[in-house]
């Protein structure tokens, strides 16, 4: 899975550079999130601008990241949701759980 990670102060930004975030590759994102949490990261921003398709496994990994960040008194924000991806958050009511921003810059201003 193609991921790009940037550091902005205490925030780690993960750009998911895949067309799909699904049961085939979401475990790799989960492993990367766990690695960051284990190394002391508390505030994560996941940019999904390039993701056109997400399934329940992809959503599950994001929920797991959200819970992990919350348990550490950190934050787990999302940006760049394409319309079909956004529709999956709405269908599963997860848009009420996450802080969702249009762009990475918008999200960074919220910290």
């Amino acid at each position: 899975m193609q991921l790009k990670i940037e550091v902005n102060g205490a925030v780690r930004i993960i750009y998911v550079k895949e067309e799909r975030l699904d049961a085939h590759n979401s475990d790799e994102l989960k492993a990367e999130l766990n690695r960051l949490f284990d190394s002391g990261t508390k505030d994560l921003l996941i940019d999904l601008k390039e993701v056109r398709f997400i399934d329940s496994s992809g959503l599950g990994v994001l929920v797991s990241g959200f819970k992990n960040a919350s348990a550490r008194q950190g934050s787990f924000k999302l940006s760049g949701l394409q319309s079909q991806v956004k529709s999956m958050f709405e269908l599963t009511r997860l848009h009420r759980v996450f802080d969702i921003f249009q762009t990475v810059d918008d999200a960074l201003e919220s910290y």
């Binding site: 399934d55 329940s56 496994s57 959503l59 599950g60 819970k67 599963t92």
Partner: peptide, 22 residues
């Protein structure tokens, strides 16, 4: 049913819920 608030942050069952919804 992950649309219930109590199960909203569960990590299972969302796939079948999605299929049933669509």
């Amino acid at each position: 049913d992950p649309s219930f608030e109590s199960d909203q942050l569960g990590e299972k069952g969302r796939g079948i819920f999605i299929i049933r919804s669509l």
